[in-house]
Every structure is written in structure tokens, then in C-alpha cells.
Design a protein around this nucleic acid. Structure first.
Lengths: 245, 245
DNA sequence: CGGCTGATTTAGGCATTCCTAAATTCATGC
DNA sequence: GCATGAATTTAGGAATGCCTAAATCAGCCG
């Protein structure tokens, strides 16, 4: 990680025109890379390709271009790291996405399971002015309908990492903080069993080998599979981690 | 105008995938062609190029592709006419544009002079569902903030042609129906002098050779130039055309 | 330390959508 | 009827953003 190819960028024209450099697809790459970095350090070509459903060869081409424009540090065969400019751009897009999702739910009667695709398209078309007006109209929310934190206009964001329901042993009481937002069916199911941000869950039992997890939600007892549990991020309540005075 | 090359379309694959055929740029072409047809029959390559600020050669390429897909009838050197499918697509885009403009003004505090550009981008990204929800949220408007009629979901629209302030002689009393929406500065100026849809105007005098036109609006007397007057569409009030009972 | 395997990059292609420059066509006037 | 000029099309090129197939590189196993 000593020397990165970010110096290539300065050799070429440093176009600062927002529209010409950061296109819609480029925004998608930056978003994906940001989220990969959050959970696992540097983002590899393959990770990015998988996340965006592109061929790895296509990713190589795009990240080369993004690196040329100083949005990420790229060393061949070593994966990719966002620069400050790239991170800023990623957070800008993430802010747009999450404010749009929040707005659609709050004011237009969308349900939380079908805002993702709409936001995915609108985030590339909405002006900064529109995003700010939407945010103001719904009271400057700090999380989106799925519990994801909304970056500020200034580019700061809460990056607290939570563990998932699947990471817990029995006996924990937790608060749901956030759920994965991209699968409508998962979201619909979670809604029917009452799992959404803010809800309190008690973990009653965990079967080994990624077996089902038994929960108590609002007095109701139920089981969910490990893959689903892994999509539910939670915060400890009154456990060893957070001793209440 | 007897034989048109629309038959070419049927020879090729008739892809009905919305996203693959009618791209964002294609929607812009169809919109432009629709509006040119409204005022002047068939749309020529040059007209389209000028309206979209593209080189005429670029227009030739695009209209060939649109013709291949059955969206317009195209005969070399003869200009272009929308087919039913093309007209439908144009009206769909126009509906999106105008509902978005209306929504931004009604619910997000936009002023009428800066909604055009925002709508120009959002119209290519918004789903049918979003447009319908926006329309419902503001009471299914029939005209946009500039007075342009909004096509229905079913693809019908009021195509009444109005004359402009510049077409009138002295002595007429008219109601402003619609103003051109694409120049923010013009809109801001029109707002300051009180010209907007619904306002009543009396034409006091018209200087020859495209000279200024003297008006009375709400008791105020003022003059505007002919080019500006040409952007204000009006409807006669109690004149020979429309004898009031 | 040579070779295998998987990850990654290069090479070459294709569609879209724009451009400029050079034909070509149309319409018209002499 | 043919020359002129304007409108239009063709030709060729560039950038974006994706693809597949064929190298190439890195890391690891024996």
C-alpha cells in the first residue's frame, strides 16, 4: 500500500466539470466501492463486478478511468481505494439515494420495499437543490426507511458498524437498526413478521451450522433462517457491551 | 407523402422492451418532433437539430434508428412524421415532464422559472408509478405551471392552438393561456410584469415592423417587445370569435 | 522453486450518441 | 437544362460503457 497509481491522475487533464467526469454509471461504481470498503477494506475488481452484475473485465476499464480522474487509487491486481474526492462523490450519491427513498415513503405513499429501484434511477438525475428541498420537506431525516444513515450535505456520515442477528448467541436483547434495502421480497417478509428499524428483539435460540434462529418480537415467538438474519443489523441493549450506569 | 419508409420497421426485430428502444435521448427527439409537428406539419432534420442543439448529421442518424423501430415515418430528404407509437411515446414523456414541473411548484416550493431543467432530467428516470403518484398528490392537474396541457395517462391531450400576443391588433381583450417554459430569464421577467396563465390583458397599441406592444394588465400600462410577446399564448375574451351570449 | 488456480488485465467488439467534413440531393432561378 | 445554394445524408471518428475470449499475474502447494 506504499505507492498507488493516483499520480497518474495529475498527468492527465484534471477535468473538474461534474457532469463530464462523474456520469451515472460512475456514480454506481463509486457507491459500490464505498460500501465494499466499509465492510472489507480495499475493494477488489471481482467484488465490484459481482455487486454491480458486470463482467470483471468491464470493471477494470471503468476503475482505470475513475483512477485517471483522481476518484480512486488503483494499483493493478491490488484492488481499489477511494480518494477523498471519490469518497465525497460516493457519499453525495448515497445521500441522494437515501433522501429520495425517505421522501417517497414519507410523502408519496411508497412502501419501503419498492423505493430502492426508483431511487436508483432518480439519484442520477436529481439536482442538489431538489435533494435539499426534499430533505427539508420531510424534516432532515438522519436515516432512510431501512435504517441506513443519510450523509449530510457536507459529506459526513455515521459509519458505525453493527452486527447482524446471525452473529448473536441466545440471550441477547437487541434493537433493530437497519435492514438490507435491495430485495423487495425480503423487505415485504420482514414487514409481515414485524422486523423493522426500532423494533426490539430477544434472541431465544440459535441452531448450529447456520441453522434457524428463534426470536421473540413483541411477545411473538418465531424462527428465521440464518441468511435472512444476516440481513438484519442490530444494536445491543443493556448487554456487556453497553453497561447502563 | 404517399409511400413512407415505415415498412422498414417490420423487417427488423420489433423489440418492445421499453428501455432498449426508447432511451433518454430518443425521448428528447420524440418530444421535439411532436412539438414541431404541432406547429408546422412534418418536422425537418434541420428543425429538429436546431431545437435540440445538435448537428443535423447527428439527427439523421437518430431518426433513422427511430424509424427502424417504428416510432416515426421517415423518407430521405422529406422530414419526419410520428407514427401512432411514436406519438404515444412523445406524449408519455410530455406528461412526465409537465407533471414533474407541476409537482415541484406545488409541493416543493420551486418557482416556475427553474423547474424546466430539473424536469428535463427527471422525466427520463421517473417510473409511471411515480408520475401517477405525483399527479394524484397535486389533484390531477390538467395544465402545468406555464399553462401547457398535461397529456392523460391514456395518451390524449388538448391540442388547441392559441395565437400569441404578437399576433393581435389593438383593442383586443385576451386571457393568458400559456407561456414558453424554457427560458428562466423570460419567465422571471414575465412574473415581474404580471403575465402568467389566467391573467387578463388588454392590447392598447401595436407598433409596426415588430415594434413594441402596449398592454394594460390589471390596470397597469406597459410595453413589451414583439419577440417576448410571441412567447405569450392567449385566448380571446368576448371578441368576434367568442360572442358571449 | 516450478507449476497450478483463480483473479485480473488486455485485446478486440459492439451499440449508443454525439461530432466534423465531404458528398449528395432538392429546389429554384436564369 | 443546368448551375447555384441550401438542406440533407454519408463517411469517418471519438467517448462511454458494456461484452467475450485470451493473455497475464499473484499466491500458494508440494
Amino acid at each position: 500500500m506504499s505507492r498507488v497509481s493516483g499520480s497518474d491522475a495529475s498527468k492527465r487533464e484534471s477535468l473538474k466539470d461534474k457532469d463530464s467526469v462523474i456520469t451515472g454509471p460512475a456514480e454506481d461504481y463509486l457507491k459500490a466501492i464505498y460500501e465494499l470498503e466499509l465492510s472489507g477494506g480495499a475493494a477488489s475488481t471481482n467484488d465490484i463486478a459481482q455487486r454491480l452484475s458486470f463482467a470483471p473485465a468491464s470493471v477494470t476499464g471503468m476503475i482505470r478511468r475513475l483512477a485517471d480522474h483522481g476518484l480512486l487509487a488503483y494499483e493493478r491486481y491490488r484492488g481499489v481505494t477511494l480518494t477523498t474526492a471519490g469518497r465525497r462523490a460516493a457519499l453525495r450519491t448515497l445521500r441522494r439515494h437515501r433522501i429520495i427513498e425517505s421522501y417517497l415513503v414519507e410523502t408519496l405513499g411508497y412502501r419501503w420495499d419498492n423505493v430502492h429501484d426508483e431511487a436508483e434511477r432518480l439519484e442520477h438525475a436529481a439536482s442538489e437543490e431538489l435533494i435539499d428541498k426534499m430533505a427539508a420537506a420531510i424534516g432532515e431525516p438522519v436515516v432512510d426507511p431501512h435504517g441506513a444513515p443519510i450523509p449530510t450535505r457536507e459529506g459526513t456520515v455515521d459509519e458505525t458498524q453493527y452486527c447482524s442477528l446471525a452473529d448473536l448467541g441466545p440471550g441477547h436483547r437487541v434493537a433493530v437498526v437497519r435492514v438490507s434495502d435491495d430485495d423487495p421480497e425480503v423487505l415485504r417478509y420482514l414487514a409481515t413478521i414485524g422486523i423493522m428499524p426500532g423494533v426490539t428483539i430477544a434472541v431465544l435460540a440459535c441452531e448450529p451450522f447456520d441453522g434457524p434462529i428463534t426470536l421473540s418480537i413483541d411477545g411473538e415467538r418465531m424462527s428465521i433462517g440464518a441468511p435472512l438474519a444476516a440481513q438484519v443489523m442490530v444494536d445491543m441493549i443493556g448487554n456487556s457491551e453497553a453497561p447502563s450506569h
